[in-house]
Design a protein around this nucleic acid. Structure first.
Lengths: 354, 354
DNA sequence: TTGTAAGCGTTATCAT
DNA sequence: ATGATAACGCTTACAA
């Protein structure tokens, strides 16, 4: 085995703009301007500079650039938990445009913990990110708002605030849930349970309202115990599943807080020997890649996650480039669509009704 | 709705170390030393400084610190694709220790594309990350090695190189695959197919060798067409599944390149009306959270991913703190364990044998 | 058009 | 123990 080989190549001193200036025989600011592509430098000079830079293998220091120009070319992304399959797609969308714009992503997992989120946000602000995208949070919390008010551009994804004029990218929660409830009602379900995501999120409020509206309009069972405040994720799904299926008069259908949550519910059903959709119908939210597998076959509300992430990043870029003033909040709503698979079906005769 | 409220609070000028120095009535370097906790400053002075800093709401600029001290407190993480559930756990492990050490993560998706990986690595080096963890790559490529040779500390996860003395954290591939093959053999399988991950990875080579050894030792069918060079992920699993199940004399068991890959294979089996494990046994690799679901119930080789990520980060931190010289490569091997679930079972009588 | 010089906010060096 | 002062590598006025 060879020894850890570090090419002697500029291992020592870094090639700086001064070196390039000397090599090209021009001033230091000319190098800066030339490399930045500013048209105030003569084409000829510029080429000379570029050649010199290449010859020396010069790479500008983003650090120094950032310190001086106050643009770090970095954006922070706050997400509850990348390990939840619903999130990476958003992140990829953000990354798509960030990469194109030469920006780096600082990804932070908050685990849904406000304290942790605050720390991460503060750290991002310290690092002077040019902006941030929030997919996680606690956006209504005063302390979060205080940080958000510090002047860093930001875009919220899937969390709309009533109290603030945020830039926002979201899915049409109302339409999604309405379609889901209608679909179940058409199949004959009258006791439809609804699992909420973390209460802090506006998406949750919207979905819950949509659920309540639909239930009322279609004259379905509107018992309060059919709504469960919960969380995203498989484990939360297990809890929700156990809760509902353990009821004296269990619902015949459950709308989960998201797909992973639905998987947890399906799992509980399987453990209890219930067949889906004969004994229970389940609907997810997000349409993660797994949902379409034969083994899962989850009816779910699709969200164009990657596109949404990209849209959020675009909005953020716009916000960043625009001068601090006159930023009119932009709200982009993406359509949702109900993808009917095999986790929903007509009510089985033997199921007790209300 | 309130207008985008940006608290007038130091919205204008940033509080710098100079302000703190003035407020505390000490010199600027004393502030630096005091806040850095160096014991050359008198306790009393130090407290005075800390108080002043707090009063002003001072936060040091990581940017300026990095520029001057040449430590960015940032580490780069290269991963093929966070959207593949096998990866986030590693990332979380890395994040666990990074956060503890005050470091920020720069996460990069390479999509398994070498060119893209090179760009991202170069960008990380430009940003002067203190180190990087590679989970993706193409570690043998000369161009990657050239970058790795530039002096940035790095740790490889799941990719061991024969040619270089890298710091490395990996799973015991040999034991994992051996256990898998033995398990299948005990169930009566003789035609066991093996799906390779991306050829560039050493983990693949190790696993393939282990497979071949076990097959030979147990005198199983060793036809060359039982090995398929492939990739990680569901889609690749579909391809692999279609390939093997479409053979004139199909294998009765398949060892997938990882769990997502296995899910793809299971999906093809389901599409073709094959029951698992009656008609086909499938084994995954990694043991992602989904694997334990009743609907999936995948027999798989477990890897302590989060722990491995943490170990990699620890090793990296050690490497970083240690002075450039005298770094003895550390190789940590984590045990793997076969988790037997319901995707493997005895060969069904009706299945044709060899 | 091009070059000079003044920062950006720290840490490190070296007197004091 | 403490405090000037010089970097760090760049951008941006401003002068030439």
């Amino acid at each position: 085995m060879t020894k850890n080989e570090s090419k002697p190549q500029q291992q020592g001193r870094r090639v700086t703009i001064v070196d390039v200036a000397r090599e090209a025989g021009v001033g230091i600011s000319t190098v800066s301007n030339a490399l930045a592509g500013k048209d105030i430098v003569r084409l000829k000079t510029r080429n000379k500079v570029i050649k010199a830079a290449e010859r020396l293998g010069y790479r500008a220091s983003p650090l120094a650039q950032a310190l001086r120009s106050r643009r770090t070319m970095a954006i922070g992304v706050l997400v509850a938990d990348v390990a939840n399959p619903s999130y990476p797609d958003f992140v990829r969308g953000i990354e798509d445009v960030a990469l194109r714009e030469g920006c780096t992503l600082l990804l932070c997992n908050t685990d849904g913990d406000e304290e942790r989120q605050l720390e991460q946000m503060q750290s991002l602000i310290d690092r002077q990110v040019d902006g941030m995208v929030l997919l996680s949070p606690h956006c209504e919390s005063d302390r979060v708002r205080e940080l958000l008010g510090k002047g860093v551009p930001y875009v919220l994804v899937q969390r709309r605030s009533e109290r603030y004029d945020d830039n926002y990218v979201g899915g049409d929660n109302e339409a999604g849930i309405r379609a889901a409830v209608e679909h179940l009602a058409e199949l004959g379900h009258r006791r439809i349970a609804f699992v909420c995501g973390p209460a802090a999120s506006s998406a949750v409020a919207e979905r819950l309202a949509a659920y309540r509206n639909a239930v009322k309009r279609l004259k379905l069972d509107h018992a309060e115990d059919l709504v469960l405040a919960n969380d995203y994720g498989i484990d939360a799904g297990h809890v929700a599943g156990a809760h509902f299926l353990g009821m004296k008069n269990p619902p015949t259908a459950i709308i989960a807080s998201n797909d992973m949550n639905a998987l947890g519910i399906l799992d509980v059903a399987a453990e209890r020997g219930l067949s889906v959709p004969q004994d229970l119908s389940v609907i997810g939210y997000d349409d993660i890649a797994l949902a379409r597998l034969e083994r899962i076959n989850l009816t779910t509300i699709r969200l164009p996650k990657r596109e949404m992430g990209a849209a959020a990043a675009e909005a953020l870029m716009e916000l960043i480039s625009k001068e601090a003033g006159a930023r009119l909040p932009r709200r982009t709503l993406f359509p949702t669509s109900l993808v009917v698979r095999k986790s929903t079906g007509p009510l089985k005769r033997s199921s007790r009704e209300r």
